[in-house]
């Protein structure tokens, strides 16, 4: 796993191996804490990112564990109203068919299908792009709420 710190941005490069997701969760939670999210929100953001990465592994890479996934974590600090965490996830696998992304109804109790719901529930912005070079770029943003403004 490669790591490159650039101030308020952190770039991670992992393989599509579920073992490596734990390191990403830790980085997300650390970034969230620096921006001022409380523990519950840090955990929720890490969960949403984890679910997105799990979908990349399962769908874009069909379970292959040696493919590249790039993650950029940007800490948004400049304006209080815009404080938060922005996460970009870039894969180079099978492009997502955006029209087919659909979470299941929560009243439909069955295993699976919760990842999309979690992502939508937790994050404020979720944008999929299909770059010309292939794969998918997923951009997600979570803004801090006013009551979580950092003290001092």
């Amino acid at each position: 796993m490669g790591k490159n710190n650039m101030g308020r941005r952190e770039n991670l490069s992992i393989h599509s191996n579920p073992v490596e997701l734990r390191q990403v969760r830790s980085a997300i939670e650390a970034g969230g804490a620096r921006v001022g999210f409380n523990k519950k929100d840090c955990h929720a953001i890490a969960l949403a990112v984890d679910e997105a990465l799990a979908n990349v592994i399962k769908h874009a890479y069909s379970g292959a564990q040696d493919k590249k996934i790039e993650i950029e974590i940007e800490e948004l600090n400049e304006e209080i109203k815009q404080q938060g965490l922005k996460i970009n996830i870039r894969d180079f696998g099978k492009a997502v068919e955006i029209s087919k992304i659909k979470g299941r109804e929560l009243t439909d109790i069955r295993p699976g299908g919760l990842g999309v719901h979690i992502r939508r529930k937790v994050m404020d912005e979720v944008v999929f792009e299909c770059p010309p070079s292939g794969g998918t770029l997923l951009q997600m943003v979570k803004y801090r709420r006013n009551e979580q403004k950092r003290k001092g």
Binding site: K39, K40, H43, L47, D50, E51, A54, I109, R110, P111, G112, L114, G115, I118
Partner: peptide, 30 residues
């Protein structure tokens, strides 16, 4: 994560088909 939850949902449905009960306890806040 949701794969863990899915595992528990599947176990719940499996044991309910056998008239059994699945009980969880001592969950951390996370």
């Amino acid at each position: 994560d949701s794969s863990g939850v899915a595992t528990l949902v599947e176990a719940l449905q499996r044991i309910q088909r056998k008239q059994g009960r699945l009980l969880l306890h001592s969950l951390s806040p996370r």
